[in-house]
Design a protein around this nucleic acid. Sequence first.
DNA 1: TTGAAAGCGCTAACAG
DNA 2: CTGTTAGCGCTTTCAA
Lengths: 356, 356
Amino acid sequence: MRTRTGSSPTIETIARHAGVSTASVSRVLRGLGGLPETVKKVQAAAAELGYVPNAMARSLRGGQSRQVTFAMPDIGNPVYVAMMRHIQATAGAAGYRLLLHSTQADPVEELAALRALADRHSDGLILCPIRVTPAHLDELGRAAAPVVVIGSLPEDLAVDSVRADSVTGAELAVRHLADTGRRRIGLLNGPADTVPGAARHQGYERALAACGLRYDDALTASGRFDAQSGEEAARRLLDRVPDLDALFCANDLIAVGALRALRSTGRTVPQDVAVVGVDNTDLAEACWPALTSVDLGAHERGRLAAELLLSRLGDEVQAPVSRLAVQPRLIVRESCGASAAHADQVGGPSQHKEIP
Amino acid sequence: MRTRTGSSPTIETIARHAGVSTASVSRVLRGLGGLPETVKKVQAAAAELGYVPNAMARSLRGGQSRQVTFAMPDIGNPVYVAMMRHIQATAGAAGYRLLLHSTQADPVEELAALRALADRHSDGLILCPIRVTPAHLDELGRAAAPVVVIGSLPEDLAVDSVRADSVTGAELAVRHLADTGRRRIGLLNGPADTVPGAARHQGYERALAACGLRYDDALTASGRFDAQSGEEAARRLLDRVPDLDALFCANDLIAVGALRALRSTGRTVPQDVAVVGVDNTDLAEACWPALTSVDLGAHERGRLAAELLLSRLGDEVQAPVSRLAVQPRLIVRESCGASAAHADQVGGPSQHKEIP
DNA sequence: TTGAAAGCGCTAACAG
DNA sequence: CTGTTAGCGCTTTCAA
């Protein structure tokens, strides 16, 4: 085993060892020219001393950190984990490291993530804002590095974004419920004043109209975007409107809570009440009855956001602002009337029907 | 709105602006002394120009990046997300940023994460190895920065670690099954040659012995640590041993797959077959029947690992190696015979019995 | 092709 | 208390 001096070798150590200049070491190590003789000496010295270039020095010199940040509201929500996985894959493949910033759905934290770009520790940011306040617009406008927002933004803001078509997604769900004979369709929403919350509500309302069903405030309830809140909201709603025959839930977590509430109030899913979630997370397949869910393309959004950010980082010239939208698909599973018998007869996992 | 020059102001910009030296700027901005007059001028200039110190320069100078890395096998597994959440909270509170490295359960990737410490982009690493090969031991020995391993390590390796007592956890589960009258208890394991896989197997075998039940290879099956694999393994096992009355699953994902297999082969849980998972992830409460699960203290492990790493980073002196172990608890839910009636009568979420 | 030298932006002696 | 100065480790002109 080789001797370990206290501190790691620098480019100068290698230079001395190889009898060349630091400039030559730098060149050789990055594959730029060099006399075969020189190259060999440098490589030998580097190998022998176990030299690895210092990333911080390189970043300072080069003006870029080769790191990107993903800031999202709640790491406990599998939909963000799905995004993260694809962001990490895309960024990693391009040689970028991934920094995580969990904002706790706190706008202050979101702004902090934006402002943190000023210290140049990160070359760019992918942000999932839960709300878009004037302060957000302001900070987005003056961000010190490229930002891609996953979510909807005002038209006139010159910031790249990737959004789900949440309204259409909600429509898909509600329409499917109506088409399969449901008439008293409730909405279990997250905070109505958040971007996703507002979108779900809008889609719900619009779809009802399209199906000739009347919108009724009494059929809606809102809370947080988690299972416990979903369960509580479902109980409240069911108390108030016992004859509901379907629940459209703003995400899968809420839907899982709703399933619990339904079960504990003696209702059968989907016979008595059909349930649809949103995000098509792993939870949808894990719960029972397996959850019909609107896939808003979290994977796709993560990948696209990362690609957008990377291309922005690579660009010399200012490419025009991109505003991507991914199409939702409805994944029909048992919670929504696909007969259990049908599901039972198949061997493999992941049986579902897809409505694009 | 203030004018935006192309590049951000440096400490020198501020110095000129305030009519002082860069050293004074540095001092003032870090709260070290200064004449009130000077302080005011500097702060004014910094505020006016929107100055933020460059993190890379600071890191290079200071010899530390104020970043730590968490490397884990599979970000799709909620147990790692749980760890991550607490690592992020602990590290974040101490002013460290969190880098993510998903290793895909690939030993090569794990080694890469270890070696990457050499470039000093990260001050320390929390590693969840899925396997510990001789190469791991070697790299752990020569790591360029402090490492904390979440998992078991050979006694003679001088590396901090936090482990779950997975063997005791398995015993808790199997013993509970035996105590509640189960006699044909199967094991659905992940890869047997991984650290967690081996531990689950060992605990299973040991608990059977303690309960006077005979170990039988035919009652075990193994695959990967995910739901699909769990479902397939469960099918194989049930085909082979139709009269199983309990399944001990190596993690919650496998257990979820097992629930699916049981349902689709017409068995009722827990009446026909009781099921226990491991990790007590959110999944355990999401599925139905709610899953009895061994809580191996993922939160605790994440927090402790982060604290260990941070204290190691702060230490001037070499503190002795820490080897922490967290105690498992069995969280009993419906999949294991807690009567559904009992669960139904309660209003709130998270009803369960806890066996420490 | 190679080496000398000038920084990237910051902090920390060390004098004054 | 403040300014001068010397780097942290690297890349990159610019000459030779």
